[in-house]
Design a protein around this nucleic acid. Structure first.
Lengths: 349, 349
DNA sequence: TGTTAGCACTCAGTAGCTTGGAGTGCTAAC
DNA sequence: GTTAGCACTCCAAGCTACTGAGTGCTAACA
């Protein structure tokens, strides 16, 4: 059977009506639309065809139709196609404040951004922290804080900074500390985690003499910083928004979804898989069963990759019911990406 | 009317039975208990008295009784009284791993601790980040990262460390940077936010000469660090646990509770008020209406103050239904406080 | 050949009714 | 002071009937 333009129009009309109401859509409702002024009977015939093609279904015999995953997929694909030509008509999100301020704390920015996205779309947002693959050590700094504490500041490429406070036996002489710092920076800067191998480590320890113990603890701190960069954090916002969509909260599902959002681990691996494929800055849409998280099989997820320059990047995902307003979500995400890009790729001309 | 010991026994029996089942408790159930072998009729007479005293109520005419806030209050007060004498019989929580490891990252420790508490009690946990009142600047460090970036590390008393990356016009000469760093540390260390007044600031700027602009930006960073210390973060864990208790999730209440937990602001002010009164390390129990958060009027909250030494302290709160197992929660919290204290107050003998 | 009107049919949801069980309060007897 | 007995109340579950929305099918129409 062929999917002629009238069938398409009816399918899209069903989808859009169902997006608004959340109720199955009947033939009468469609026949009242301006661009589909046929009798309900005609619409019913077409609907029977659409059902045969697997694009819509009836929840029960005497109900209207709702779209299937396949139906949504068709709709979204067309939408994304048209999107390329079209410019967003949405007003830009009010992130200007956020982005124009000096961005010393990227994480805070991301959390705020997630909040804005969540409140603006009424869906749930998740953001992975900035993430730099195969990162390298840029800079290492030692300073003694007080009798038995040593502050180690580790800076990675992409200006990811972590502090570690080590408790040590005795306060080292400032000159010695300076020497040690020089030694470490000299040998380690520019190296990735893999580059720092056992041979290098033992050579370092030898050169450090008395401080070989301290050196290995500092190296632990460095390793931990790398590890943290690998296991990037995930922020979520707007989790309670799922309560707006009864189809997600029926039964115990609310609890499962909230749990998934709270335990961010599973989300992390999932979101990792999600966008392996997508080319840079592309927006991807996952509908229902396409979502690689079990508790989200009734949801759709729209993801985008943000980039903070210098190879540092992460993901933003918007989670909502399958009847989410894809148009709006995609527009909003594109807008957000653009705003971010403007700020980060041209550093303050 | 007097509350004799049999009445008390019946009240406590009702409370404990209701804790387990969540169902109103009838006279037959009580009369089957070993220590209350009277006929149901006798129990009913006593129950009528307890109801008159406002300690229990019937949800509807022909139902069993459930405790009122006042009834819980009586029960909890007695429990806390006995607690003082008694030693916890609970096995210690498996935090040993957590605590015996070197604690370089306090926040991570707190988050993990919240998780352990939540999974162990099956209630929701909230923890305020460490919080040091009237903090002082301990140490300030400047290092140039690359052409236009300057890393400022600010350390407060209590070893609270924050990084700020400033974007500057030109890379300063290393010697000048050293001078500037020396000047700032010399003038500012040991001062609180209030001590750094306008006079001091203008004097500093004058001394800094060309760098007066930079100085004011560094001071901004310092101020922000103080501010962050004031607006301490709040971590929550186990929010989905509320779904275990139907009396909390009926209607839209689940959504409200989850929202409150996600928007941590309100929690913050509330938890601040909560424990103003309590003396150090005391455990406080808030039942129903006593909780100063509207959406939690159907809950009880048990709080404790933890101390990381050097005046740094914060709060832990456990949120559950009014029929929560107060005994277990209080024991668990005490145990946790003790374990924390052991680690932090005697720094590694 | 595509469109429409009409009709019988299905089914979810709701309201009303009945029934059973749990629990109470009260009274009278022990 | 305690207990047995009894009438009473009320929730919850199950049943029935009804309504309304929506369908599929057939036959007539343009």
């Amino acid at each position: 059977m062929e999917l002629d333009s009238r069938k398409k129009a009816i399918l899209y009309a069903i989808i859009e009506n169902y997006q608004e109401t959340g109720e199955p859509v009947g033939s009468r409702t469609i026949s009242k639309l301006d661009n589909l002024k046929f009798s309900p009977a005609t619409i019913r015939n077409e609907m029977a065809d659409l059902e045969e093609m697997g694009l819509i279904v009836q929840p029960h015999t005497s109900a209207g139709r709702i779209p299937t995953d396949k139906g949504y997929r068709l709709y979204v694909d067309r939408m994304l196609e048209e999107q390329k030509a079209r410019n967003s008509e949405l007003p830009a999100l009010p992130m200007n404040d956020l982005l124009s301020r000096r961005i010393d704390r990227v994480e805070e920015l991301l959390v705020k951004m997630a909040q804005i996205l969540a409140t603006n779309t009424n869906y749930t947002t998740m953001v992975t922290g900035p993430h730099y693959r195969k990162n390298k050590l840029k800079f290492l700094q030692l300073s003694s804080l007080e009798e038995e504490k040593l502050l180690v500041v580790v800076v990675l490429e992409g200006n990811i900074v972590k502090n570690h406070i080590l408790t040590i036996d005795e306060k080292p002489d400032p000159q010695e500390l300076l020497n040690l710092s020089f030694l470490l920076n000299n040998k380690l800067n520019g190296l990735s985690l893999e580059d720092i191998n056992l041979g290098l480590i033992s050579a370092l320890k030898e050169e450090a003499g008395n401080f070989s113990d301290l050196v290995s603890r500092i190296l632990d701190a460095v390793a931990e910083t790398f590890a943290q960069d690998e296991s990037y954090p995930i922020y979520t916002s707007g989790a309670p928004n799922i309560f707006r969509y009864p189809e997600l909260t029926g039964g115990d599902r609310a609890s499962e979804l909230i749990s998934t959002l709270e335990e961010k681990k599973e989300l992390g691996t999932a979101i990792g898989q999600l966008s392996e494929g997508g080319s840079k800055q592309d927006i991807q849409v996952f509908i229902g069963d396409e979502v690689p998280v079990d508790s989200m099989k009734d949801c759709s997820v729209v993801t985008a990759t943000y980039s903070l320059g210098e190879g540092v990047q992460g993901k933003i995902g918007i989670i909502g019911p399958k009847r989410m307003n894809y148009q709006k979500v995609v527009d909003t995400l594109k807008d957000t990406m653009n705003q971010l890009d403007k700020v980060f790729t041209k550093p303050e001309e």
